[in-house]
Design a protein around this nucleic acid. Structure first.
Length: 312
DNA sequence: GACGCGTGGGG
DNA sequence: TCCCCAAGCGT
């Protein structure tokens, strides 16, 4: 959960998740849709699919691998996570290199080459950070101390070098460039894409939903029926031609949502219907408008549903 | 190595 | 409002 996600955002999800899936066996035995719904809102949903597959693999293996190579072979476990688990759970003296450790290392050694080109160099330099007997003796504490140093003192914008225990040996501090490291390659502009989604509410207060494809963006998550997300806006008539059913559609506003690599603007159309025809219902599935909480709805769709319901 | 993959908070 | 960033991974 903590991959690219803040501790604060993860907290409630983590506790709910462990309550629902208390053991690796319970997680392995769970339905994938239940895992996805427990993850809904947290983002990067491949993590949920990988974690589920990972649990099944661990159960099949009869337990957790306890070395870096074995952990690295599990779904969703890359170089960082393998090292973190090995150090924290199994006491293997390795240094997990996450964003914090990259930043600390770039400053300690004044690495001026920008990320991501410098990644290999930083990883190699970070390997030696635990050279001391004290660090070797306490791999878990050393890893977590590095994270905390990065999160508190050696922070991205305004590092508190005056309070840093490694101040004396920090090349970037000595050169007066700590706050400018690590350098990063320029970002590419984030394009805007446009879509339209449809919220239909029947007399029994049910809404029509459907499941997204198994691969790609928001894979296997739930959504309102709608158009593709494309570079050009959808004129109303063209959008309505793709509505899941004929109804008195009302445009009720635009949801703006930022993804990693594009911004999405969704025009939400809403309508009341007496009942869903079999044909309409066959295109997806029905769910009570009030009980949307247990579904695998990404945040962008939650926003669309709220906007649509407010207009009805 | 580059790109696809979410979301929310802070400055 | 906009940009940056967060205990990265898989293809």
């Amino acid at each position: 959960m903590l991959q690219q996600t803040t501790v604060k955002a993860v907290g409630p999800y983590y506790h709910r998740f462990l309550e629902k899936f208390p053991t690796v066996q319970a997680l392995a035995a769970a339905e994938r849709d239940d895992v996805l719904s427990a993850w809904a809102g947290l983002g990067y949903y491949s993590r949920a699919r990988n974690l589920h597959a990972c649990a099944q693999q661990v159960v099949a293996l009869g337990g957790f691998p306890q070395d870096v190579a074995g952990l690295r072979a599990l779904p969703g476990v890359g170089a960082y996570t393998a090292a973190a688990i090995a150090a924290i759970a199994f006491g293997v003296p390795v240094v997990p290199v996450d964003g914090n450790v990259e930043r600390i290392t770039a400053r300690l050694f004044a690495v001026e080459e920008p990320l991501p080109a410098s990644r290999k160099t930083l990883a190699r330099l970070a390997e030696g950070l635990n050279d001391s007997p004290e660090a070797q003796a306490r791999p878990s504490d050393f890893a977590q101390a590095l994270f905390d140093l990065g999160a508190s003192l050696c922070s991205p914008r305004a590092p508190a070098c005056g309070l840093c225990p490694w101040r004396e040996s920090c090349a970037a501090h000595k050169a007066g460039i700590a706050a400018t490291l690590p350098r990063k390659a320029p970002k590419v502009a984030r394009p805007v894409r446009y879509g339209a989604h449809f919220l239909a509410l029947d007399a029994a207060e049910q809404i029509l939903l459907r499941k997204r494809p198994e691969t790609g963006l928001l894979a296997a998550m739930t959504e309102l029926p709608g158009t593709d997300w494309r570079a050009d806006p959808w004129p109303e008539a063209e959008a309505l031609s793709q509505a899941p059913l004929t109804a008195d559609w009302q445009a009720c506003g635009v949801v703006r949502h930022v993804f990693t690599h594009f911004t999405l603007e969704v025009t939400v159309y809403a309508a009341r219907v007496r009942h869903f025809s079999n044909q309409a219902a066959q295109a997806g599935f029905l769910a009570p408008a009030s009980g949307v909480g247990g579904l695998a709805l990404p945040s962008v769709m939650l926003k669309c549903i709220r906007l649509g319901l407010k207009a009805l």
